[in-house]
Design a protein around this nucleic acid. Structure first.
Lengths: 183, 183
DNA sequence: TGGGTCATGTAACCTGTTACATGATTAG
DNA sequence: CTAATCATGTAACAGGTTACATGACCCA
């Protein structure tokens, strides 16, 4: 359900092709929302039927033709409606197979689980550098937006990513200490 | 994909009905994995075909008959395989419509967004008390397990929930301060 | 000459959600 | 007497995932 609004939100910054949207998703919103290329094209199709977006085909030479998607007045009002009415209950409904696995890891040895957590720590550190790269990409998109106050929200969301990673790393260390004590 | 393993993990603690599994999900694993009742019954059906679980019907008087599900040897080996092979990449792929909404909230006024964050803070505090209730429920399930070291993992996972909530609350406060400064 | 980028999608499948159906017992 | 609990599911739909198809240009 939210994918439509993610697309509307990005189109609200400017007219784009499905291909551009795909890249925009993968280089920005990706940290808290992922969309497959095929999904984006499918949604754009249904959104055009709903009259939330309209298209214009641009003939190109040497490259495939472009289909530019533009948000309509109806689309913009749907976006605003969502911004005002969306609930936060999703936040408390995360599905995480890693935590599910850890929950049942009593079947493995303590040493094996310490190893697993150490591996996880490595992956978290790597992810941290991904977050910093997203920070750089941000400039590309935020430069296209006139109003400076709008960029604050981008930054706040990124800070969330960093804060939760920091908490996760601390939790990993605490958990390893706890497991070491069992040996 | 993980739902099957969540079911296997719980059945590994003891034989249960679909109804019991539903309750077990809702009172324990629920913080990081949610499953609908209908989904559990559907998965149990396919798992029986896969021979991961086997059933025994228990005739009851005054109550509907029970269909007890028991993990098979094959099921147990599939569970172990998953515990050893599952990756942690899901952890970095969370989908969060609240963060998506916040990202696009430059369309709203600063005051409206401060209000939204304050409301979110209230919901986070409420969720904290839910986590503590889960803590109490834990005793019911952990008492049924012989091996004490297995309960550590339950606790570690719960600690994650608390740690990330603490970090989230701190982030909310910081963000509100930041938005106040824009006024 | 082979891989990457540009640009569009379709098809099949799997998973998750919502709504509904049934029917008896038990506790307030 | 009414709502909750026990216990089983089905059906339809929405949303997400994986794999595949096409084809030209550009750079090394």
């Amino acid at each position: 359900m939210s994918l439509k609004y993610g697309i509307l939100g990005l189109l609200n910054y400017g007219t784009m092709t499905g291909y551009d949207l795909d890249k925009a998703f993968k280089s920005s919103v990706n940290i808290f929302w992922q969309a497959q290329t095929s999904q984006i094209y499918r949604e754009l199709g249904t959104m055009e039927k709903l009259n939330w977006v309209e298209t214009e085909v641009i003939i190109q030479h040497g490259k495939p033709n472009k289909k530019m998607y533009k948000i309509t007045e109806l689309g913009k009002s749907e976006l605003l409606k969502w911004l005002y009415e969306a609930s936060n209950k999703d936040f408390f409904k995360s599905k995480d197979s890693f935590l599910l696995m850890l929950f049942f890891s009593g079947e493995k040895t303590v040493d094996e689980n310490i190893e697993m957590l150490k591996k996880f720590k490595q992956d978290c550190l790597e992810y941290f550098s991904v977050l910093n790269k997203v920070d750089e990409n941000a400039n590309y998109y935020t430069n296209r937006i006139e109003d400076d106050t709008k960029c604050v929200y981008w930054d706040i969301v990124l800070e969330f990513g960093k804060a939760s990673m920091t908490a996760t790393l601390q939790w990993i260390d605490d958990s390893i200490v706890r497991l070491e004590a069992l040996k």
